[in-house]
Simulated assay, not measured.
Amino acid sequence: MVKVFACVVGARPNFMKMAPILRALRGYPEIRPVLIHTGQHYDPQLSDVFFQDLEMPRPDVHLNVGSGTHAQQTARIMEKMEEILVAGPPGGGRFDRVIVVGDVNSTMAAALAAVKLQIPVAHVEAGLRSFDRTMPEEINRLVTDSVSDMLFVSEPSGMENLRREGHPEDQIHLVGNVMIDTLRALLPRARALETLDRLGLTPEQYGVVTLHRPSNVDDPQTLAGLLRVLADIAGELPVVFPVHPRTRQRIEAFGLGHLLDGQRARQAALRVLPPLGYLEFLSLTSQARVIITDSGGLQEESTALGIPCLTVRPNTERPITVTEGTSTLVGSDPVKLRRCLEDVLSGRYKTGRCPELWDGKAAERIAGVLAAH
């Protein structure tokens, strides 16, 4: 008897995690995956292009929830997910399980809608904890894990967290990191692109920056301090900055555009770009000398690639990227950021290693566990 799994995505990080899982599940004829896109990210540059780059099928169901406050967005996703789960998958039948990935609002909302209908939930990337409940993602992680009966974990700290929270051992599975599955699968295609030539960049002779978290971009003084460091360091090392729409709005609202577009920035080598598709962005990050980011996914990718990563956060739910990998937490402190950048440029920065099970086969392990159950 074929089991139907609702595979839910909503935002860019979800796509990268779900793509290898969908491919792995198709190796099991007894499993039928149905891809549901909540539409949490609805900008084509943040959504549609990723489906193309990741060679994902078009969603079977699109909820088109759009933006809003956390409560509004979560409520809309729950309402529409409930309708879909009650109606059943396209073509008939019923949903036997819901699979959610990561920690965005779509993850938590879909999990809550499912468990209230007594549909079991599998959470991929379970157990990650920053222990900072001011982060919306931390709340999403805690709630999603609490209602899931199958917990797929990417690093040992996640196993320890889930055990401490009282989850039964038979629900916890250390499988590795599906983000790295996608990275390893698409790295040759990404590096074959002419992105660096188009931007006039030399491999390992530039930095890449991403900033989008409220703690970094919602306070004008904090954002200004970080942008000044980027403009300064660009005089020694070209810096590429694909600007997230949220960050672009804040820069304009705070009147900080001169730090990116002024004469000083042009004389240096600060390259401001719109958001990029996954392949083009991976082409940039995989050949960079340093990555400066507040993104959880980039902490992991830089560790897998062996590239220094300066994480613009005071904490991380991915501690293995710091203890074993190439990441250093610099918070929002421009002085510490500048000091770490100088260590990278002088060759004093630490080296790291790729964690165990980050081998490109995590999705195969996940699919194997799902099929066995």
Rank of each mutant, 00 (worst) to 15 (best):
Leu142Val: 14
Thr144Lys: 11
Asp145Tyr: 00
Ser146Met: 03
Val147Gln: 08
Val147Phe: 12
Val147Leu: 12
Asp149Met: 07
Phe152Ala: 10
Val153Pro: 04
Glu155Asp: 07
Ser157Asn: 03
Asn161Lys: 08
Asn161Trp: 06
Arg163Ser: 10
Arg163His: 04
Gly166Ile: 02
Pro168Tyr: 14
Gln171Phe: 06
His173Ala: 08
Leu174Asn: 03
Val175Ala: 08
Gly176Arg: 02
Gly176Thr: 00
Asn177Asp: 14
Thr182Leu: 12
Leu183Asp: 03
Arg184Phe: 12
Leu187Trp: 11
Leu187Pro: 10
Ala190Asp: 11
Leu193Gln: 05
Glu194Gln: 14
Glu194Thr: 10
Arg198Asn: 13
Gly200Ser: 09
Gly200His: 08
Glu204Ile: 00
Glu204Pro: 01
Gln205Tyr: 01
Tyr206Lys: 13
Gly207Lys: 01
Thr210Val: 06
Asp218Phe: 01
Leu223Val: 01
Gly225Lys: 05
Arg228Leu: 13
Arg228Ile: 05
Val229Phe: 13
Val229Trp: 11
Ala231His: 07
Asp232Thr: 10
Gly235Glu: 08
Glu236Thr: 10
Leu237Arg: 13
Pro238Gln: 05
Phe241Ile: 04
Pro242His: 02
Pro242Glu: 02
His244Val: 05
Pro245Lys: 05
Thr247Tyr: 07
Arg250Trp: 04
Glu252Gly: 00
